[in-house]
Structures are given as C-alpha cells and as structure tokens.
C-alpha cells in the first residue's frame, strides 16, 4: 500500500529559515540545510521549501540552499515561491530539487503549467493553490482562489481550478486553506474532500494543523494523500516519530 506522506514545510527568505525552528538543538536553526537534514533524519517523507525572498536580486540564494540540501538529503525536495519561468524550474531541478511548486504564475498564465509539464515531466510540477471560503460558515458556497501570498482574490472557483490545473499537466496539487492557515484548529477538510474527489492526481493538504488528530482528519475526512505542516513540527509540539506512531495506531498507512 502507498503510504500517506508527512511533509514539513520551511519558509526561507534570502537563504535563511523564517520564523524560528526549535524542535531540536541545532547549531544554526536558521540554516535551511541543517533543518532539512534534521527533518530527514527524523523520518520526514519529503521536505518542502517555500522561498519568500522579497528582493529580486536575492532570488538566487535559494539555488545555493537547494544545492547544499541535495548533497545531504536523500528524500524528495519540493521548492516553491517565485517560480515564473521555465528557466526558474530548470535551475531548481538542476540544483537538486525534485519538484517545483507554481502558484501565482499558474493563475496569471495557465499555459505555463502545460509548458512546464511538457518540458520537465508532470511528476515534478506541483501547482500550489491558496483557497478561501466564499462564506466562512458554509462550504456549499465554495472557495475562491487567491494569489500573492493570499492577498489578491482571483475570481476563480478553487475546485474548478484544481481540476483545470490537472488537465493542463499538474502532477500534484498543494492546497492551502487561507481561512485555516495559522489558526491551528485543523485543515479545511470540506475543501480537501471536494478537491480530492475531483482530482486524479495526489492532493497535499495544508493550512491549520495544530494537533495529531488534525493530521488524522486530513487523511480520513479530507482524503488527502499527504499533509504539509510547519509550526507543529518547527516548535517541537510533536516530533515526526510521535506523529507517525499516532497515525499508524489509528490505522493510517505510514512509512
């Protein structure tokens, strides 16, 4: 049986981890390579870097980070943030990334997803989607796609959008609930379930995890193939081992 995946996500700006990581005694908890290595050793199934470097001239720093990470970490690495051209993708893959996550660029020019899938294979093209409920209390009202870090509504229905992205060549969808992100009150599993039932490609659920039960719900209620988590791991609330033991005990297939 294919195992459900647990993916720690690191926000990286100008080559440094943003927000503290305190789950283990690291000499430099701001070094994304050291943190990725620690997560690898802790049993993470994949690692995701989200590059939130603001200034254009420092965009190259992520390439160095990926380069060094790929020398030491032998599990899949996804890199997102600011991926806008085929050249951006080529440089990340050459440095050692296995997948790239495309977000805003996919909304601004959907054909880019198809071009990327044809050039590099759909297995390495993740489309990241930030979705927000049209009515906070009623999932039946649907979800709207946002870009620019969740600041700009795009007038697109998130479920139709993920299906469209699959048809253009996405190999995987990383779906973040804007409502739940940072709340630590659980994933938006109505959103995840609507998306996963529409998709033939894997779904990574993101945004809102605060407890181990939330992870379990992401898989059972949300139907996610993988879950992304940040602070729950970074702040040492739970280790990956504890997470996996809990999920295994609840009958989830875990590596």
């Amino acid at each position: 049986m294919l195992a459900k995946r647990i993916i720690p996500c690191l926000d990286v700006a100008e080559g440094r981890v943003v927000k503290g990581v305190s789950f283990v005694d690291l000499v430099d908890a701001g070094d994304p390579v050291a943190v990725a290595l620690a997560y690898n050793e802790a049993g993470a199934d994949e690692i995701t870097f989200l590059d939130i470097t603001a200034s254009h001239e420092n965009r190259g720093t992520i390439i160095e980070v990926v380069n060094h990470t790929a020398e030491q970490v032998f599990i899949p690495l996804t890199v997102g943030g600011g991926v806008r051209t085929l050249e951006d993708i080529r440089r990340l893959l050459r440095a050692g990334a296995d997948k790239v996550a495309i977000n805003t660029a996919a909304v601004e020019r959907p054909e880019f997803v198809g071009e990327a899938a044809r050039a590099f294979g759909r297995q390495c093209i993740v489309v990241a989607v930030d979705a927000k409920r049209r009515d906070a209390d009623d999932p039946a009202a649907g979800w709207e796609v946002y870009t620019h870090g969740g600041r700009r509504p795009r007038g697109l229905d998130a479920i139709e959008w993920v299906a469209h992205m699959e048809s253009l060549g996405a190999g995987e969808i990383l779906l973040t609930s804007m409502d739940q992100d940072g709340q630590q009150s659980g994933y938006d599993n109505a959103l995840n379930r609507a998306a996963t039932d529409t998709l033939g490609i894997p779904l990574i659920a993101s945004g809102g995890v605060g407890t181990l039960e939330h992870m379990l719900d992401g898989f059972t209620e949300g139907g996610a193939d993988a879950v992304l988590a940040a602070s729950i791991f970074h702040f040492g609330t739970y280790t990956i081992d504890e997470t996996k033991a809990y999920l295994r005990d609840k009958g989830v297939v875990i590596r």
Binding site: M1, L2, A3, K4, R5, D45, R122, Q123, G171, E172, D197, L199, G200, I201, P202, L203, G223, D225, A226, R255
Partner: peptide
C-alpha cells in the same frame, strides 16, 4: 480504487513497499 473504494491517484507518487 482501494479497499475503501477511494480512487487511487496517478502518478503513483510516494513511499510504497
């Protein structure tokens, strides 16, 4: 589909035995 009749996604992506 799997044992719970959920659709199996393709690509087959992730860790398997």
């Amino acid at each position: 589909t799997d044992a719970d009749s959920h659709r199996l996604k393709v690509p087959h992506m992730g860790w398997n035995r």
